[in-house]
Simulated scan of single mutants.
Amino acid sequence: MKTLGPIELALRLLRRELTVSLRRRTELANPLFFFLIVCTLFPLGLGPSPQILAELAPGILWIVALLSVLMASDALFKGDFDDGTLEQILLSPVPLYTTVLMKTLAHWLLTGVPLTLLSPLLALMLQMPSEGLGALLLSLGCGSLVLSFIAAIGAALTVGLKRGGVLLSLLVL
């Protein structure tokens, strides 16, 4: 049996996590729909004033992105905990930090990246000036990665609780 190098092992773990996550498409679509719906409803609540929407657009997008990442993070370790895979991961010779890193990276690739790619469209809908779209994309891309890692800490702390989603949100916020 061939021993895998650390990079090959990490890539295989990432591929496994992406494959497992893609089997539950509804869990992936929920944060995106939430992001889209909440950002669409803000102009109805604030009024149609382009100046107000332009001023608040970056904050609105960031807050809704944070809530969307939190919404998806509850399932980060829950499926593995429920079916016993988490215990097998802990007993395996694979370093735990590599597994957690790849699970979190897969979470970001499937939630943070689509949110980031959807944000310019919503920013323009919220009348944000087009000069700020590059900064928004860069900040949301990096920020959603950091939010995924912070959410992974909260998800790990609340994985054994029956209704850990509320506590997870409080811990991360």
Rank of each mutant, 00 (worst) to 15 (best):
L91C: 09
G132R: 11
I60W: 03
T104S: 07
L18P: 05
T104R: 04
R12N: 12
F149E: 03
L117K: 07
M128E: 02
A72S: 14
L4I: 05
L86T: 03
A72V: 11
P58M: 10
I63T: 14
L101N: 03
V113S: 00
L117Y: 11
I37N: 01
G164P: 09
L13P: 00
P114L: 04
T26L: 15
G84N: 12
T99D: 02
P50Q: 03
L170H: 02
F81M: 08
V113I: 06
A65F: 03
S49I: 10
L167M: 11
L32I: 12
G154R: 03
L168E: 03
L137G: 07
C142G: 15
L109H: 01
V113T: 01
P95G: 07
L91V: 11
K162L: 11
L28W: 05
S119E: 03
L109R: 01
A75H: 11
L167G: 04
R23W: 06
L32A: 09
L145I: 12
L118I: 12
G134S: 09
S68C: 05
S139T: 15
L28R: 04
I52P: 06
F81I: 06
P95N: 07
F33W: 15
G143K: 00
L44G: 05
C39V: 07
P58G: 10
P58D: 09
P48I: 06
T158G: 06
I89N: 05
L66F: 15
T99C: 00
L170I: 14
E131W: 14
L173D: 00
L76E: 08
V69H: 00
E8W: 07
E17W: 05
P93E: 02
V166D: 04
I60F: 04
V64D: 01
L46Q: 04
